[in-house]
Amino acid sequence: MEAEVILNTRKLDIGYDKTYIAKNLALSLYAGEMVCLIGPNGSGKSTLIRTLVGLQDPLGGKIEIKNKKLNKISLSDKSKLISWVLTDNMPTSSLRVCEIVEMGRFPYTNWFGKLSKKDKSIIDNAIEAVHLTHKKDYRYSSLSDGEKQRTMIAKALAQDTPIIFLDEPTSHLDLPNTIDIMQLLQSLAKKTKKAILLSTHELELTLQVADKIWMMTSGKLKTGLPEDLILNGDLQKTFGTERFRFDESTGGFRMNYPVYKEVSIHGDKSIYYYWTERALQRNGYKIVENSPLRINISGDGKWNLYLNTHHHEFYTIENLLFTMNEWESKFLSE
């Protein structure tokens, strides 16, 4: 079954004045999918989002929402099609959570803003969806950053539009809150059949939750499933540098540390092996087959270090590394 196309662009050029940031973009957003827009700083993620919502004019091409041209849609009709959550420009308001979410119903109410029973239940559901029911009468200014962000997401939900855009919704948040928001958006896309597009810097997390990825880099935009972008090497090309690389096997980033010492490890590939390897790499060791310096890892949290006739047993990696350094300067430095 083909999902419904809600937004698509043809030959879209974006940028400021006469400076093009990206050219000839052909993009589609489908109902029920969460798309993550990623790219290095300054690659034009915010410009793309501002252009797609109509806060900024495109330099060429067209944007269509539900087969209507974006610039032909009136402001009030657009408010029933697109809603957005922005990072910047957060209002320092004394409004209460429920009052802010209520504004999401603005496009549907009369001049006085009178809420019907249906409006009220939509508002309550939106607040519940972001888990803020217990704080609905709190003032916005008294909320934590994560709760503020969730309030604005609830406002967007109450607006009940087929598309929600979020410009870096997690940039001020700590990891648990970030994961929380990402999962929330992902499940909302599935449950409510909305198209959700968010820009983010949380690359590792994005690869786990995004239905699709839009990756901006030096004037181009690549789209695809996260897995495809990993396998064809696009992610490594965009984000890898001399100092770190994208690890295709784990979906995370690995630092490239300068290597000047050698060690060999023996033992089963357990989590002990994995984390010992990480610590050694950080400390400049290259793992080789045959080095005079040997570590034997047993699965029960014991490390045995051998050098020529010397031998010692350790119970933490910290002590292991300490002795390795000692031996290094005593026996191997000439």
């Binding site: 009030s76 957005w84 603005f106 496009p107 109410t109 006085f112 607006q159």
Partner: peptide, 22 residues
Amino acid sequence: FLPKKLNALLLGERYATGLGVS
């Protein structure tokens, strides 16, 4: 006749635009 739009302005100009306020 203005309170509804004034309320939207409290969210900041960009959010107000998003709610269909000119």
